[in-house]
Simulated scan of single mutants.
Amino acid sequence: MTTQTLPSASLIKRFAAMVYDSLLVMAVAMAYGAAYVSIKYAVFHTDLPTGERAKMGTEGFVGLILVVECFFWFFWCRGGQTLGMRAWRLQLRQTNGQFASLPQAMVRGLVAPISLALIGLGYWWRLWDKEGRTWHDIASHTQVVQLPKNKKS
């Protein structure tokens, strides 16, 4: 099934899926932070000055961004859905109906935060695009589509 046969996902459902996914991303970020700080201070015996909090530093922050990006890349390439997207029956696809490739997921993962950071302008663009695409849809040559409801027998 190509993306032309399925409707583009609405902004409300995209944002709802983002809320679900943000909860998962927070859990992943907390687990990463705990693991990183534990390794930094326990394994490498980095001294923590008295009264100072454990810090990840620049390298830890870069690692966190990479872990969050990998979270999305994995799900977009393997089934086209994060858990939040699955809850709202949304799926990321190429125009030919295939799931996103890793380079497409990477482009999408880099452009989507910019789309959101600019007061959501990259998302609001969907309202003017004839095909209902956001900036990151256009940049990655993918589209988030609304899947039909499953018919129960």
Rank of each mutant, 00 (worst) to 15 (best):
T2A: 12
T2Y: 05
T2H: 07
A9Q: 02
L11R: 05
L11S: 01
F15W: 10
A16M: 11
A16L: 14
Y20P: 00
D21W: 08
D21H: 08
S22Q: 12
A27N: 05
A27H: 03
M30T: 12
G33P: 03
A34N: 12
A35D: 05
I39L: 15
K40W: 02
K40M: 08
Y41G: 06
A42R: 12
A42C: 00
V43Q: 10
V43W: 14
V43G: 08
F44Q: 13
D47A: 14
D47C: 00
D47T: 14
D47L: 13
L48H: 06
P49H: 10
T50W: 01
G51M: 04
G51A: 06
K55F: 04
K55H: 12
G57Y: 07
G57P: 09
E59Q: 12
G63E: 04
V67T: 14
V67R: 01
V67P: 02
V68D: 03
V68H: 00
E69D: 07
W76N: 02
W76Q: 10
W76P: 01
C77R: 03
R78L: 11
R78W: 12
G80V: 07
G80Q: 04
M85V: 03
R86E: 11
R86L: 14
A87N: 09
A87Q: 09
W88R: 02
L90Y: 04
Q91G: 02
L92N: 03
T95W: 05
N96L: 05
N96C: 09
Q98H: 12
F99N: 13
A100Q: 01
S101F: 01
S101I: 05
S101M: 06
S101G: 08
P103M: 13
A105H: 02
M106L: 15
M106Q: 07
V107R: 08
G109V: 06
L110V: 15
V111Y: 06
V111R: 03
A112M: 13
I114D: 04
S115T: 11
A117S: 15
A117K: 07
A117R: 01
G122Q: 03
G122R: 02
W125R: 02
R126S: 15
L127P: 00
G132Y: 06
W135F: 10
H136Y: 13
D137N: 07
A139E: 09
Q143D: 01
L147C: 09
L147A: 07
L147I: 07
P148W: 11
K149R: 13
S153Q: 13
S153T: 12
